[in-house]
Nucleic acid binder design. Sequence first.
DNA 1: CTCATAAAGTCATCAGATGACTTTATGAGT
DNA 2: ACTCATAAAGTCATCTGATGACTTTATGAG
Lengths: 225, 225
Amino acid sequence: MRALSKTNLADEAIEAIRDDILGKRWAVGEKLPNEASLSAMLSVSRGTVREAVRVLASQGYLETRQGSGTYVRATSDAGRPLTMARRASLRDQFEARLALDVEAARLTAIRKTPEIVAGLRRLLAERGNYDGGNQAAFIERDLAFHKAVIAASGNRAMIEIYDFFSASIADTIAATLGKDIPEPDMQAHADIVDAIETGDPDKADAGVRRFMAPVLAALDRMILS
Amino acid sequence: MRALSKTNLADEAIEAIRDDILGKRWAVGEKLPNEASLSAMLSVSRGTVREAVRVLASQGYLETRQGSGTYVRATSDAGRPLTMARRASLRDQFEARLALDVEAARLTAIRKTPEIVAGLRRLLAERGNYDGGNQAAFIERDLAFHKAVIAASGNRAMIEIYDFFSASIADTIAATLGKDIPEPDMQAHADIVDAIETGDPDKADAGVRRFMAPVLAALDRMILS
DNA sequence: CTCATAAAGTCATCAGATGACTTTATGAGT
DNA sequence: ACTCATAAAGTCATCTGATGACTTTATGAG
């Protein structure tokens, strides 16, 4: 390890600056030295410093304000763990997805509008029941419904994470499991929409759990067998 | 929306190039035009192109080989959404965290062992009540308890995401809010452990919601004021 | 003391040049 | 013809210097 940087001053600059951020050399909100100073400190040109700073800004560590300076936005390493979350077991991923599905259904039940309910009913109708045909297409239609529920919750953080998981789950299914997906429970799905329409978070909650339970049970059977 | 880029050619360049990558303009492994050409295409200087390319390389989309060229490494978008989740509002982040807290408490109630319960009680005792002292330290002790619940659930995916959010939330609080954190509800916390001990998922669920409700309410007040 | 204005500080971007590395073309020797 | 060392061309890596735009601070008149 190490010493793998023959021609890459910018990457070294990135590491040096990130280490200082993680090492709390500058507090959150504090201003970094200006580009000229960093350039001198690291013994690289201003252009190289700019490339490093822009990468760190794109990763959420820094924030640059023209005319003012460059500031620390976060001193944590968050964001990196997520690639690990994707490597968790499929069951764990489904369980995490369930947590989001439940909470989003609750929120949507509270924040619902007639338009939202109508949209969900339309998506559910389009989804239909699995007729034995193109499985990938059906999964996509099913996912469109669930994403719509999440989107209707209005919670951006949950939307992003759900996207992350659904993509990851779809990949895993395609790569490892193939056909053995449990039946989709149309009635449970319809119940969820009904609960949202009547504004009952607990019923929406229960509906989500009901439709997800057989999926998790099926996964458990696969793990045991 | 859009047209929010007064002084940020590099970000526009990043988007333009990423869109072309996502739009499969160049296949995986294919070589991009050289820096001078990209510079001309986008009507920006080479330095700006380099900043954009380096960001995309740091995100896994591109790979540069000195003397050879710049190549497409991946055309998928997985992993990117999470950086966006961090930019969601603090309330959204808390709500997402709640989803995980609830589900983890449920799972832990089902999968509990005497050792787990004892560990949680110990952490809760260490946490204590907020005595007006070092706030950051208290938040850390509080977080240690919640993380232990998540860890006890045994769900790796949720552990990783929780880490992601708690770090992000801690940063945001430190940077923007300062002192106005709502009271911690010790009784609700103790109730959670009790519910876990008796193996009652619904009670654990309710306990989590009870302790989190005032936090979300406080955030709503801040948004309104 | 207030506030408009000037000055200084800093990031954003550009242009040109040199070095280092990779790929391709060349051509002598076999 | 074929091989292969070498030259040439192409490309990224980095540096230097300069100008514009924006923000913050200092200034001074009222």
